[in-house]
Design a binder for these strands. Structure first.
Lengths: 196, 196
DNA sequence: ACATGTGAACTGCTTCACAGCG
DNA sequence: CGCTGTGAAGCAGTTCACATGT
């Protein structure tokens, strides 16, 4: 869905008012059948003989994905990964707003970081009820990731985007997505090593 | 494989000399059957009744993944995503060395960036034969990603790690892994929006 | 007795094919 | 006539269950 939305917004910018599953497939690297099937799960958005109306479908997908409201992000770990994320244009565009930044390094706490004050991780639990964080972005060293994730969950946050290369063990009520860049690179390494 | 390797090195550091598929499953968030099945594809590394010898299996996996040699990385786009990657500890540990950094911004070209001189993207093709780049890391704006990917492929690089949120259209002989952080965040958004 | 290696059963997803509708 | 929506067929990956080996 997310991928389709990206392609559709691309198509809309180029002036398409309607698009067939075939055309969308070419943009997004999927098959047309796949797209029709996926979209049909959520409703009948297309017109037979015509294709899908681009602006309406964009609106539908944004609704489905929950992108019509703003999500309040808290970044844990004011290192470079967090910093890179903070200025990633794709985030602000989609209604993901960074509203808090935490670290445990006394040399960083109190300083500003992309316009946000870096707060002490020890104060997270106290701040959380007031700040209403929706999603925590974990950009911390791998050996501390699990402990900090437990802390984050204890404050009531139920969605985590994890950049530490380790699978987090958390209650099923918490949604976790781990972005494991080491794995991605090693897949490339594997492909290169096994190429004739 | 990559995930198992991470878990095994973790286990080795804690002094395990042998590990059962069951124990490894608990570490890595997989099932024991899955692990046995995956490992069996590449060989019979375990001892029945005992489990897998940790150091040997680590060595085997590193061999399989092609991690015994050094891979030469070139980062395209000297922004913060590239910068974050450059200092990500997981990379150097695994034999991925950044040996070149390119950008097209005249204000950046010639400056240093984490110890590397930022070169003009226009010189990439000329440098490539000498520098023997194995993998290109694309950390460029989404609207330029495809064009730059084409350029990279034209220089003979056959493996790309892409951070732009767009599926790249490239020859099948090139291995591409796209890390689409927008998709990951939108999946969290979806989960939050549809939670009762 | 314990834990691997493996073929068979199962599950979920992708692709196919076409009826149905504009 | 074109393209969607959809049930059915096909496929890949996961889980199960147990025979095999230490």
């Amino acid at each position: 869905m997310s991928l389709y939305l990206q392609c559709l917004e691309d198509a809309r910018q180029r002036g398409s008012t309607t698009i067939s599953s075939e055309a969308l497939a070419r943009l997004g690297g999927a098959t047309s059948a796949q797209i029709r099937h996926d979209l049909a799960i959520f409703g009948s958005f297309g017109r037979r003989g015509l294709g899908y109306p681009v602006p309406e479908l964009v609106a539908h997908l944004r609704e489905i994905l929950g992108l019509n409201r703003d999500w309040r992000l808290v970044v844990i770990g004011a290192g470079r990964i967090g910093s890179a994320l903070a200025q990633f244009p794709g985030f602000a565009d989609r209604g993901f707003t960074i509203v808090g930044v935490y670290d445990n390094d006394p040399r960083k706490i109190g300083h500003r970081w992309d316009g946000h004050p870096i707060r002490d991780i020890a104060t997270l639990a106290a701040d959380a009820p007031r700040e209403q964080y929706d999603i925590a972005v974990l950009a911390v060293p791998v050996d501390r990731a699990q402990a900090i994730a437990d802390l984050v969950v204890a404050t009531g946050i139920t969605a985590i985007l994890n950049f530490a290369p380790v699978p987090l063990r958390l209650p099923a009520s918490v949604t976790v997505k781990t972005v494991n860049m080491t794995m991605e690179l090693e897949l490339l390494s594997y492909a290169l090593a096994h190429r004739r």
